[in-house]
C-alpha cells in the first residue's frame, strides 16, 4: 500500500521541519507548502490524503483557504494554529475542518488526531457493533453494554452516545450536538448538553469526575475517545 500523503501548509520553516520529521518517521509521506497559494496549487495538482493547515498564513487567511478547499476537496483537513480562541476554532470546524490542534502541541496528540481523521474517511460504513474497551455498543439493536452488562439509557442519552460513537476521536461542537440530537431550535440551550453529558458520564465512565471517554474541549465541544482504537 502506498504511503498516506499529508500536505503541510505552514509559513514557519521550523514547524514544517518538525512535522516532516515527526510524520515521516511515523510512516507518512510529507509534502510542504509555505503559503496559501503554493498549498492550493499543490492540492489542485496532486490532491493529498490529508492537509494540515495553519490559520495564520502570510498571503491569505487560513479560514478563507479552508472555505475555498472545502468547495471541492473532501479529504480530511486538520487545523494547526497558534490562534487558540474558541471562536476561531468553532469557525474552522463549522467551515469543514475535521479537527484542530493549537500550537504548542504534543506529538502524541497530533498523531492521534491524524489517525482519527484518516480513519473516518476509510471506514464510512462501519459494522453495527462497536467495542470501546469495556464498552460495547450495538447500533442496530440500540443497546449499550459495559463489561457484558446492559446499561439502561434514555432515548436522548442513547442518541447522544450513538452520535459520539459514530464520530469517535473527532471534536463535536456544542452547536452540532444540540442541532443533531435536539433540533435546530435548541442550538443555544447548552445547559441540556451539560446535563446529558453529566448523566452519560455517570452511567458509563469508571470515574465520572475523571472522564476518559467523553472529553471536554473547553468552550468548543466534546470529543469521544475509544481507548482500544490504537490503529
Amino acid at each position: 500500500m502506498a504511503k498516506t500523503e499529508i500536505l503541510v501548509i505552514d509559513d514557519e520553516p521550523q514547524i514544517r521541519k518538525l512535522l516532516s520529521i515527526t510524520l515521516g518517521s511515523n510512516g507518512y509521506f510529507v509534502k510542504q507548502a509555505a503559503s496559501a497559494k503554493e498549498g492550493m496549487m499543490n492540492i489542485a495538482n496532486d490532491p493529498p490524503d490529508m492537509v494540515i493547515l495553519d490559520l495564520g498564513l502570510p498571503d491569505e487567511c487560513g479560514h478563507t483557504v479552508l472555505q475555498k478547499l472545502r468547495e471541492w476537496y473532501t479529504n480530511p483537513i486538520l487545523i494547526l494554529s497558534v490562534q487558540n480562541s474558541e471562536d476561531d476554532i468553532i469557525n474552522a470546524l463549522d467551515s469543514g475542518a475535521n479537527d484542530y490542534l493549537s500550537k504548542p502541541f504534543r506529538t502524541g496528540e497530533l498523531l492521534a488526531r491524524i489517525r482519527s481523521a484518516l480513519r473516518s474517511t476509510i471506514q464510512e460504513e462501519c459494522s453495527p457493533i462497536i467495542t470501546c474497551g469495556e464498552l460495547q455498543i450495538d447500533l442496530s439493536e440500540r443497546t449499550v453494554k459495559k463489561n457484558g452488562e446492559l446499561i439502561k439509557l434514555t432515548a436522548t442519552e442513547y442518541a447522544l452516545l450513538a452520535l459520539f460513537v459514530r464520530n469517535e476521536g473527532k471534536v463535536l461542537t456544542h452547536q452540532y450536538l444540540l442541532r443533531d440530537v435536539w433540533g435546530p431550535g435548541y442550538i443555544n440551550q447548552s445547559q441540556y448538553l451539560r446535563v446529558f453529558i453529566a448523566q452519560l458520564r455517570k452511567k458509563i465512565e469508571n470515574d465520572p469526575n475523571r472522564p476518559e471517554l467523553f472529553l471536554t474541549e473547553s468552550g468548543v465541544g466534546y470529543r469521544f475517545i475509544c481507548k482500544n482504537n490504537e490503529l
Binding site: 442518541a159 435536539w182 441540556y192
Partner: peptide
C-alpha cells in the same frame, strides 16, 4: 443557575 431536574428527560423534547 439551573438546577438539574431529577428526570431531565421530562423537561426535554426530542427530535425523533
Amino acid at each position: 443557575t439551573v438546577q438539574f431536574d431529577r428526570k431531565p428527560e421530562l423537561w426535554l423534547r426530542r427530535k425523533f
